[in-house]
Design a protein around this nucleic acid. Structure first.
Lengths: 462, 462
DNA sequence: TTATTTGTTGCTCTACATTTC
DNA sequence: AGAAATGTAGAGCAACAAATA
């Protein structure tokens, strides 16, 4: 019997005692999940403390711990010791970004890659078709990539500062696939991975699917803060870290070389596995004057370096190179076989052709020009006080006043004819007071369309 | 303090009491994992009962339960209530099959798909290259496949007995990828999936990676036994079932239509999710006289139907169609975005071209002829008493006398110049007394090479 | 600073189910 | 058929850790 009657006690969530069936923890978790999904409990709502709810339901409080845990694993709620348990901002809905059908809507949401350069790729496809060894691309051989394709990949990565060999790279089906492979290979459900406070939203979803918990680490204008990372590592058992040092998606923050070294030191100290998504390397290495090298070079034995060609060369060809330390090799190969069997050799061959013929560099130059123009246009509409982040970024991070709920705002914007994503989508953990929009500059059919889109956005924000 | 001294007590595994650190269960699990991986505990070894080990270590027996559970989830051990806990047959090593470098070795291991037909595919690639819409294949649009590609897929599947629509199929990167997507989308770590006793080895590994437990179900010459499935579902909380009804890999068993209906009844009763891998449908539908339809038709709302073109059309083009019930749609789309972002449109376009031009059917005919010839050759070397399993199977299931350990036998065979896989690789659960070899007939460069390989195998077996 | 609130983790207890003898 | 052996699962207890006032 509960000691008190809680009928008049203010509790944000009161499951019906009678509705509970054994096992209790499962029953409670189901009720909670339903109430979150049907919107009865809004994102951000503080749930009753474990002991209080336990008293109310006349159960031991660890039974509530268990129930909350089930929902936490599913990403529905999050908890902070000493503070309480809360409904997640992204609770019910998915935050994964993809290109779905949009009519009469200008896309400033999904970050595409200035598809104007694809005619060069089409030419390369034609050339590959004429190769005498075309048929050799059509069997099960060389699941991690054909040697000459890997050599081209090594060449490409060399220009980005990566030195490794055939045995320590594989070709996979794009950056997203590389991340899925890395998580599958190197982490287990229940593991924790440190990330920036705002990070790649598909990675957040991927982690959720693998039941890997993300631990948000604070950062400043130079990237993640080393002492914050160190603090969290000391407190929690953290297994890995995910970084996008060249140009963080969505914040456009470029990590300074000093900061990279400091963070690498903490990573080494706590023996974390680093997943470095360097999809923007092509617009950083050799472009930014004081840029030195990827973090992979600082921690080669405990890192996975992901180099996708979706942004730099062509998004429709699903090709990414993944480089790894010797200690990680076996597990990664295993995961590649298990998830992909192999990557399309044809796509890889087209990228290879583009790299070897030098056309890949032409494409990159053209994309950089387009990025420069798009950023110039953006500055006209939204002049920033001081330039923050990567100057050639394919998207910008626009600070906004705290208006509505993020999802509501996105819906409103769609009604105004543009798709943009709210910062809530990119939150790896708890909510923050600051709100932003990520504005993609690389997804419109033309720069004129981009102008129209930005115009609409400016009007909306007033 | 333990009541007895166990120094002279026969226990198959005695972890050192002093080696234990807190938390105990984790410490015990680590020690057990090490002893299994370094080979100190051989597959099949019976571990001490929980209570006995607990007494020995002076702990509560449920702490041992926890420790065993950790290893069980990793697939290192398996347990049967009332019987005991045992080291898994596949414990330490990976059983995933892929094409790695082999010199002077005839491959009867990996099941390829008579790659002689790839010249037809090469022609189709050339035709796709000339399409005026080539550039449209190179962007992020239509992540589940371009409409006309999906229409071609629907056409193809129609000939296999599947009726569905655009909204309920997606194009993914091959069967393996489809399985990864399905597991990620529909199951969680700790879930259980029923399978045949012998099943697709990459699926076993995939399940292991996702920490999904496989529950082996006995079968006979017509496939899985309905009452066995029903029994396990009643006993355990089983969430799904994985079947390869048209021609089970590795056993070549073709499930009878009567059996399909019976099994479907049990699946419906227990609300299981069915994953139907119908990679061999093309050599069954319209070929086998009394074949009626895939199981998907019997349970459309709770099934995922996977139709890969790797075996039927071309293994290098990474394309599979996946059809699903409306209730599963959202989750599957989500998983596709999270794992792949999208499948190479180019590969899909080539397959589309092959289907629409009718060349795909030519390829299938040719492959069937080759399969027939290869099976005839096999029968010359290994005449079976009665014909079992699918007559056109790309591999055969050869019963052997219980000789060595499976891995040892594979190594010996490699020394004799052939790669063949032992039945231990395909075991989803406990060991069995019967031993087999899976002999692939579709991976040699020519039928002559196949003859040489089978000759060597026959000599080896004496 | 310290006490309080709140969440986390590991271990134990109890009830129960299945298999074997 | 019934007792013993053996594994499973839920719930409770206690020690601990972090945040906050």
């Amino acid at each position: 019997m509960p000691v008190n009657s809680f009928d008049n006690y203010p509790m944000s969530w009161k499951p019906e005692r009678k509705a509970l069936k054994r096992p209790f923890y499962e029953s409670i978790a189901t009720l909670l999940e339903e109430d979150i999904k049907n919107g009865y409990l809004a994102p951000g709502t503080k749930l009753p403390p474990q002991r209080e709810l336990a008293d109310f339901l006349d159960l031991n409080f660890t039974t509530i711990t268990r129930a909350y845990k089930v929902c936490k694993i599913k990403g529905l709620i999050y908890a902070v010791t000493g503070k309480g348990t809360f409904v997640s901002p992204s609770a019910a809905r998915s935050i994964t970004i993809s290109r779905d059908k949009m009519t009469n809507c200008i896309d400033l949401g999904l970050v595409a890659s200035f598809e104007e350069t694809n005619e060069i790729v089409a030419e390369a496809i034609q050339q590959v078709t004429n190769k005498h060894y075309l048929e050799q691309l059509l069997n099960y051989n060389d699941p991690t990539g054909i040697p000459h394709q890997k050599t081209a990949g090594l060449n490409w990565m060399k220009s980005l500062g990566i030195q490794t060999d055939q045995e320590h790279i594989s070709i996979v089906s794009g950056a997203q696939n590389a991340l899925a492979v890395s998580l599958t290979a190197l982490f287990e459900p229940g593991n924790r991975i440190a990330t920036d406070l705002y990070t790649y939203s598909n990675f957040i979803d991927l982690a959720k699917m693998h039941q890997i918990q993300l631990v948000p680490i604070l950062g400043d204008e130079y990237g993640m803060l080393p002492n914050e990372l160190d603090k969290q590592c000391t407190q929690l058992n953290i297994h890995g870290i995910f970084l996008i040092p060249s140009c963080c998606n969505p914040t456009t923050i470029m990590m300074s070389d000093v900061r990279k070294k400091e963070i690498a030191e903490v990573i080494r100290k706590h023996r974390l596995l680093l997943i470095e998504d360097d999809i923007h390397a092509f617009m950083t290495a050799g472009m930014i004057s004081d840029y030195q090298e990827p973090m992979f070079n600082l921690l080669p034995e405990q890192s996975v370096y992901i180099c996708s060609t979706s942004k730099s060369i062509c998004s429709g060809l699903r090709v990414a190179y993944i480089a790894y330390g010797d200690a990680l090799r076996e597990k990664i190969l295993q995961a590649i076989f298990t998830i992909n069997v192999k990557t399309s050799s044809f796509d890889a061959e087209v990228v290879t052709e583009l790299i070897l013929s030098g056309k890949a560099h032409d494409i990159v130059s053209r994309k950089k020009q387009l990025a420069q123009s798009a950023n110039d246009i953006y500055s006209e509409y939204f002049p920033e006080k001081e330039l923050n982040g990567h100057p050639l970024s394919f998207y910008r991070w626009l600070s906004i006043k705290n208006l509505n709920d993020g999802l509501q705002m996105e819906t409103d914007l769609k009604k105004h004819g543009i798709r943009v994503f709210h910062s809530d989508r990119f939150l790896s953990g708890s909510t923050t007071p600051n709100k932003y929009l990520r504005v993609a500059l690389s997804s419109t059919k033309s720069l004129d369309e981009l102008k129209t889109g930005l115009e609409r956005l400016k009007n909306y924000l007033g």
